[in-house]
Amino acid sequence: MKTTGYLGLDVGSISTNLVVMNPQNEVLFETYSRVGGNPISSVQQALLNAQAALGEDIQIAGVCTTGSGRNLIGAVVGADVIKNEISTHARAAIHLHPDVQTIFEIGGQDSKVTLVRDGVVVDFAMNLVCAAGTGSFLDSQAIRLGITVPDLSAKAVLSTAPTSIAGRCTVFAESDMIHKQQTGHRQEDILMGLCHAMVRNFLSNVCAGKEIRAPIVLQGGVSANLGIRRAFSEILKIEPVIPKHHMVMGAYGAALIASKAGIKQTRFRGYELCVRTILTQSFGCTDCPNLCEVVEILDAGQLISRSGGRCRKWDGDMTPRQ
């Protein structure tokens, strides 16, 4: 007897996250992986891993994609629902912590604050053109110090006297960091200083003007970082709640949405898509001076999707091009 499963896929700028959930909202399988250069192949790999782990016992009954790659991957895998990442992250947080008031979601290049009252999203904000309050800030500083991000996490919490780093901008953070090294500060104190700087940045840029109330749920890739958790609790004097599936909350929220969407017949194109060659190609539309780039997805040579362009006239248009 096959069990029904709901598939949530969160394809962001840095990571591809996958969750398969049963109708009782229990996670059967989750995976967090770095996108690398190609979101489609990273999704194919994640699906193969899911298939290997779950075997043939799970019948996928609904698929929801989310994250900045949600439309592309939605077309590739055959999504029943395509949902923005703010809504999916909120859905998962509210499901696991119904009393949540504030959600901090810090990903690779995006960071968001979502305000929840009585279990409903009432306001949110995203970072604008600057990535200083996101995971890529920590990534780039770790690279400069020659350590990995997990090392950064483990070392930062050992700090007994965090130093103050000017974290308004990653460029200036580097010069400040070098200065602190040269004045003899210990590495763990510098690393904890970086975590403080990132959190202060997030709170002053993204959360400006937002009423931050406890309980706070902290999720997204950066929530795994112990230094960041410590920085939030030290600065806000509130201990953030780290949810059970904190690394894959977007995918979990997507799976929850798929399960509630009343899908009769899923459009999921099956695990077989993992072994086919799926390519994208683009062309410049010359119908107006905007010269937009239109992207086509080819599955084993067959056109399965076309999208892009400011006027959106190409979206879903599958007629052969001259």
């Binding site: 900045s68 949902k83 923005n84 990442e85 703010i86 809504s87 009585d118 279990g119 409903v120 999203v121 009432v122 306001d123 949110f124 995203m126 604008l128 053109v129 400011r310």
Partner: peptide, 28 residues
């Protein structure tokens, strides 16, 4: 905020989430 560097993706995400949150509030 309109600016010459912002992509449409961020705007779409915000609009979709804004509409979702209003619909959820109405339902609630």
């Amino acid at each position: 905020v309109l600016d010459e560097h912002a992509g449409q993706a961020g705007v779409d995400t915000r609009l979709e989430a804004f509409v979702d949150s209003i619909k959820d509030q109405h339902e609630h």
